[in-house]
């Protein structure tokens, strides 16, 4: 019922990750070079002809350009990325979404499929009833269509696979842990679907059927117990892998899921620190075996 541990008993989660330490690790304010003639890239600043790091991360050099890749950052969008966002604001002809980026992303009324046919003019009535389609708090899956000059993302949902999300569970992880893949929508064999947003938002829900996705209706019926169990277990597997800084994609998640079942762990056991490292080690072993 209650599990209290001393901090000294908790295993280090990074034992699972590769132990090769990156060479040029810097913290904000540390000197990168005193030499002149280098170009100032992202994550650096110039002071008294010296180049300093403005973020904590790894120094990267391409010819004369020096930049620092941050260890932890907000989502840096790219066109074509699948993202999951939460509506924060409904304004004129657009919705504002939180996508874990530096600025709120924008979903224009003209870049969504409205009910009743794909090709339809957006009328003033559509503009007035925007809140009926999507309101504050709603979750949407979408694709990055464009990046504005200020870095804000413009999204679109003009495909049947995107749209409002129904019942399920959202897990937030670091965007850098999501592996880029051909598809970010997976129907997993364990009886649940997963959408891995490139922005680090992972959506786990009961198996999606092609024909119902993409609309603006939410199914509020009770989810069967077996589905819930699969969803909960997947959720805990994803958080466990994320805590150990393991890359997230369908195979790694399924390995974690299978490992947790084979080891006989209960779903709630996967919250415990020692079980988390155990799962991560098992997944890693599985990958090593497959490599051979």
């Amino acid at each position: 019922m209650v599990d209290i541990r001393l901090a000294s008993e908790v295993p280090l989660f990074d034992i699972v990750a590769d132990s090769t330490e990156p060479k040029h690790l810097v913290t904000p304010g540390s000197l990168i070079t005193k030499e002149t003639g280098f170009m100032r890239g992202h994550g650096t600043y110039m002071q008294d002809d010296c180049l300093y790091a403005s973020v904590a991360g790894v120094v990267e050099r391409v010819n004369q350009l020096i930049s620092v890749r941050p260890l932890k950052s907000r989502y840096h969008g790219e066109i074509g990325d699948v993202v999951i966002g939460r509506i924060t604001e409904v304004s004129q002809k657009r919705w504002k979404l939180d996508t874990n980026a530096r600025l709120d992303s924008v979903l224009l009324l003209q870049s969504v499929n409205l009910p009743g046919g794909e090709l339809r003019r957006r009328s003033a009535e559509d503009e007035l009833s925007m809140r009926q389609y999507l309101k504050e708090g709603d979750l949407v899956s979408a694709e990055v269509q464009n990046i504005f000059n200020d870095g804000a993302l413009s999204l679109h949902t003009r495909s049947m696979k995107y749209g409002k999300l129904s019942q399920g569970c959202l897990v937030k992880v670091s965007p850098s842990l999501i592996r880029r893949q051909k598809t970010h929508f997976h129907n997993l064999p364990c009886g649940a679907s997963i959408i891995m947003g490139n922005n680090g938002f992972v959506w786990i829900c009961p198996t999606l059927h092609e024909d119902v996705a993409g609309g603006f209706v939410q199914n509020l019926e009770t989810v069967p117990h077996a589905d819930r169990q699969a969803i909960s277990r997947l959720r805990n597997c994803v958080t466990a892998l994320a805590q150990c800084k393991m890359m997230l994609y369908d195979t790694s998640i399924m390995h974690a899921y299978d490992a947790s079942i084979n080891a006989g762990f209960e779903i709630k056991d996967l919250l415990l620190p020692d079980k988390i490292t155990e799962i991560a080690l098992m997944v890693r072993k599985q990958f090593e075996m497959e490599k051979e």
């Binding site: 924060t88 708090g137 709603d138 979750l139 999300l165 399920g168 569970c169 939410q218 509020l220």
Partner: peptide
Amino acid sequence: LLSEAEKAF
């Protein structure tokens, strides 16, 4: 913020 469906879940 949470959506209706998440609350239902």
